[in-house]
Write a protein that binds this DNA or RNA. Structure first.
Lengths: 220, 220
DNA sequence: ACGCCTTCAGTGACATTGTCACCCAACATG
DNA sequence: CATGTTGGGTGACAATGTCACTGAAGGCGT
């Protein structure tokens, strides 16, 4: 189905051919449909995940019914939070959701351990992945604790739009991105609309004035 | 000065004698006075730190003049954020402050790498440390994004008090623990005082009714 | 003891954000 | 066209953050 996936990852592409062949043997390739929970408090995987194709959204759920997106795992990255899940006894309530249909490589813990022990390149890859996520979380804490909502929303709209000039998302979705309430998003979007920075229709938002939005987002 | 520090850490106590002797040779022992910045954006160490004695407070500083405590590193733990700092190119603004006089073991990166590669026990220790911090940060995000201030403050007072019934901290200190403003802390403490849960004097807070505070803190 | 200075805490007005209880509009479906 | 579901708008209020002050408490030098 897919060929030599070890090409795809920084941590594996540099490994000797023999090691990579071994990996191709022991790893299982799994597919999951969009919307599937990849991992969560009640769904702790026993393997390390490498995301071959697709995107995973890692979300923190609150018990008051609000969510916040912690970060996204893109194709070519590994999902280290799963390893943290494996080791953690403490309670937490983050979960990973397949944001698209995904193809992932599940590497059994034993093989993972061995690889980390034996291969410098792989070890560096894993530590870099951990570090990246730590830094991502620092950023989230900073945003949530000190950032203003309009700034955060402008930034998120731009990020979600990418090169396009429209975002397909309900106010509720955006609220769940930022860990706030729908009403708050509605209010701010109304304001943006009045200032002609965006145009709204049901479930979609057109970014009319990206430079201005960038200005707002930069006030961070 | 200090004897065999390898006794002190989960990750090192289980290592073979020979390895530990090697460690004792390559590691540098450093002392720092209370208040010293152990690491920070402009002060990136090139070694991994093991905290032998004392406590480090890891703080996120905002550019609007507020702070928030991310977690504390206690004696016997390692400070993995420093390794993240080493690897990170991205900007961040967390820093570690010696909360007491500290004694730390600085293990050069090369020795660290070798140890991770060769010793299962040590590797497990390091990964556990990373996971712990990730989980800690999840908790912080949850608190900041979804927690109510009175709940968080009650919890923090109890945590800072430990077994004692008094906390030595100004309102400003408490605000910096929680990432809020002094006025907010003052307001909530006033309320607690009116309800006779605490008594205040300049720079100190007596916890009069810990059970009630625990009730408030549990509403999380 | 006395005044002086610095730090800490209290206060009211206001802005921002979160919560609640609604309403109405847009779309899908039979 | 009738109806149900989902997305979005609104006003009132609560909680939190900001600002510009005030005064109180304690340290210190004389």
């Amino acid at each position: 189905m897919i060929g030599d996936w070890t090409e795809r990852f920084q941590g594996t592409a540099q490994l000797p051919r023999a090691v990579r062949d071994r990996l191709l043997k022991v790893a299982r390739i799994t597919h999951m449909a969009e919307g599937t929970q990849v991992f969560g408090p009640l769904n702790v995987p026993d393997s390390l995940f490498f995301l071959y194709e697709g995107r995973i959204r890692v979300v923190q759920r609150s018990d008051v019914g609000r969510d916040i997106v912690l970060y996204r795992v893109d194709a070519g990255e590994s999902c280290v939070l799963t390893t943290a899940c494996m080791l953690a006894e403490e309670a937490y309530n983050a979960e990973g959701i397949a944001e698209t249909d995904i193809t992932a490589i599940a590497l059994p813990k034993a093989a993972f351990d061995r690889l980390v022990a034996e291969e410098d390149a792989f070890r560096a890859f894993v530590f870099a992945a951990y570090s990246r996520r730590l830094i991502d979380l620092l950023r989230v804490v900073d945003d949530v604790a000190f950032g203003q909502m309009d700034v955060r929303l402008a930034a998120r709209l731009l990020a979600l739009a990418g090169d396009f000039k429209e975002v397909s998302a309900t106010h509720q979705h955006l609220a769940s991105e930022l860990g706030t309430a729908r009403e708050v998003v509605s209010r701010i979007l109304q304001d943006f609309q009045k200032r002609e920075l965006i145009a709204q229709s049901r479930g979609r938002i057109a970014l009319l004035d990206k430079p201005a939005l960038r200005d707002i987002a930069a006030a961070d």
